[in-house]
Design a protein around this nucleic acid. Structure first.
Lengths: 101, 101
DNA sequence: ATTTCATATGAATTGCTATTCATATGTTAT
DNA sequence: ATAACATATGAATAGCAATTCATATGAAAT
């Protein structure tokens, strides 16, 4: 197992802001400004996190006028989220043993 | 999306030590001591991390004599790792753009 | 009952990541 | 060329998780 790559994969996805971005992009591709509005977060914060998501190839960008349109890499993210959903539904449905850490 | 549960799922798995434990348990169920030897880490560190993995139902325990045998929840972890493996092979094969953060 | 082996746990500290703020860069229209 | 909009980036700080160390708990053997 390429442990470093795996670790980076999970570390990148294991973040409230980045998860919110990924969720937002499931609906449709969006510009940075739109993402900010959609998840109600500050622009520089969003940009920093978009960078990490892009580097991990969870999302793609293309320039469109002065905007940069980010879109989801559905091939990976959708099945991944499905897996997690199943797990969460099975084990965390009622009460989650553990609170926020 | 139950964002908190998703976040906890990923945060729990996004850790060098815990990934190593999960990998070790893919071979076979093991006691704490065996895990320590297998991944070459200290006992209290391993125990703390086993707790988190257990709370997320990534692993199970059963008592056997004075040992506690931990085993992998293969139903979730194996397909998950397969997904990540594919992604990593596709996008991170040669050079990973990004170094350790 | 006590010792030994096995594991868990609490609390302090270390270490790292996320956010923030200020500013730079890039793109288009005028 | 300059202004206005859109996004990216660097650096400092804030915030949180990981590790460590000491110790407690638990199980079985003597």
């Amino acid at each position: 197992m390429k442990c470093h790559a795996y670790n980076m994969f999970f570390e990148t996805i294991a973040n409230k802001t980045r998860l919110a971005i990924l969720e937002a992009l499931q609906k449709k591709p969006m510009s940075v400004t739109d993402i900010c509005k959609s998840i109600n977060q500050e622009q520089s914060k969003v940009s920093h996190n978009l960078k990490l998501l892009t580097e991990c190839h969870f999302i793609d960008v293309k320039q469109k006028g002065k905007k940069r349109i980010y879109s989801l890499n559905k091939e990976t993210i959708i099945p991944l989220m499905d897996l997690v959903k199943k797990h969460v539904e099975k084990y965390c449905s009622k009460e989650c043993t553990r609170g926020k850490r």
